[in-house]
Design a protein around this nucleic acid. Structure first.
Lengths: 110, 110
DNA sequence: ATTATATACCTCTGATTCCGATGTGTCAAG
DNA sequence: CTTGACACATCGGAATCAGAGGTATATAAT
């Protein structure tokens, strides 16, 4: 099942930072892993991914290095220290967000 | 705590439909209830809300009626049958979305 | 050989979503 | 008689994202 993109939008940063926190990855690979892990709920397009990665790099949350593998040039992205901090922050925000939605959906008064 | 708006964006439709499924409400009231129930995690601005409500009305998910209360004119919004269906759909999508994010954050291979 | 497919990178443009700023007017409290 | 909470609304800009398009290589199929 695919959810409306308005929902999955906005979680891209958290997802990418999280994936990169486990191992360095290149763009194409990030798209595949994201789809695999989420069971196809998150399918980020290349047109979204690459500008996004460049922006994260500009903000200093990730950096990158080129590496040739079986003749193909790949650009690997790696989480920086600032990126690791940003990830922690995002994960906490995610938890807060989910709890808040839970309260609304269950209709609790507190 | 307030989460980055990129996260809370996209949940507006689900939240509004859910609130209206419990009782008819007017715009200002929706903003207040949303903030109260979410403990200030979701603070929708008027500049977002009213165009949003009009759009939901155009799509037939809600309708509205004016009602005067202590001299003040209020426009109450009410969920339609189509709106109720949309809400069910959105709630299911929300569950799918949260599960998928959970898998990614926990790093499960399946 | 050649064609198709998967891999791998990238940019540009438009659509959509949302918020801040701004505007109108009412009511109650000081 | 002014300030602040209430209540409605529009407009313009900022940000996010996907689709369409472009380049190029490796491999499998025909």
């Amino acid at each position: 099942m695919k959810v409306d993109k308005e929902l999955s939008k906005g979680s891209h940063e958290l997802i990418l930072l999280k994936l990169l926190s486990r191992k360095d990855m290149y763009g194409y690979q990030l798209i595949q892993e994201m789809a695999l892990l989420s069971e196809d709920v998150f399918r980020m397009s290349q047109g979204s991914l690459y500008p996004f990665l460049h922006a994260l790099e500009d903000r200093g949350l990730i950096d990158s290095y080129a590496q040739a593998e079986n003749g193909r040039e790949r650009r690997y992205y790696r989480l920086t220290t600032a990126g690791r901090r940003a990830l922690e922050d995002k994960e906490e925000q995610w938890a807060v967000y989910v709890r808040a939605m839970g309260r609304i959906l269950r209709g609790e008064t507190t």
